[in-house]
Amino acid sequence: MEKHTLAKNEIMATGSILLVLIYVVFFTLFIIIFPIICNNKFLLHIAILANIFALVAISWDLLFGFVGILNLAPAVFYGAGAYTVGFLTKYCHIHPIGGLIIAGCVGLLLSLLLGLPSLRLRGAYYAMATLAFSAVLNTLALGMPNITGGEEGIIGIPSLISGTEWNFYFSSYLVLTCVLALKYMLSTKYGKKLTSIREDEILSQAAGIDTSKYKVIASTIGGVIAGLAGGYSCYYFNNVAPEVFSIAFTFSIITITVTGGIGTIIGPVIGSYLLTFANENLYIIGQYRLLVYSGIIIFVILFSPTGIIGAVKKLKRN
């Protein structure tokens, strides 16, 4: 029975220090050169968006692509992180760095809360539970205007960092750190055990791997990343609104990851850049964005479930 992901020598490839160095060099150059080439604040803004989405996509992929759990609510961690920053700033006037860190912690706590049921529930049930959870949060965010600002949300959050260029550097740095840290983690014994759970959970249990523990850890890491992304997004956009809990957001994340390639770390990043830029640049499809996204997903799932990265790897093999 074909598994939902075929990412293969991901593990082999990451062991190489050379590759890591190449990544670092490439990304650093990219980060430095990009703002110089694109002397266009708007493009930088799009890139920042892409970075934020990439972070959430990576965190979602950690659960879906690597452990095999379908979570229909990456929005939960992201939105919670964003609203945390919103609340803390509005009511406690917290220092931005503190806010960011706490957003990450909130992501961690929520991921534990949502992660534990995942151990007891089968895939479909769990997915529905997460969907329900994000719907609850959405309703709460809308339905309690006194606390959450209702439809408008919380506005007037000061920036963590001022200036588009610096935000670009910061967000890109976040993505880079995330990618490197995860790639390193995956090359360790822990990472290989994680992927073995995706490959064949029963077999990994027979190999002595406490699958529950690993699932929770993976889920937690994902939660922290998404929470941080959410917190940062609140600082960058200077506001937070119930849209963060919407199905549209969840769906965008899924599209990004599936297109770029499930079960890889770099896939979501590529997918994010591709789709975010496509979305903003092709105004023609602007109105039909979700339609196009869904079309992409349908196409990818039917014909290349492993996304772009998977297709590239298959070509390389042949």
Binding site: L6, A7, K8, N9, I11, M12, K189, K192, K193, T195, S196, E199, D200, I202, L203, S204, A206, A207, G208, I209
Partner: peptide
């Protein structure tokens, strides 16, 4: 296991490595 069961998409080394 009764039906041959290994981590198909991993190589020999990793198959043994994760069981250590």
């Amino acid at each position: 296991f009764q039906q041959p069961r290994v981590f198909l998409n991993m190589d020999i080394f990793d198959n043994i490595y994760v069981g250590l």
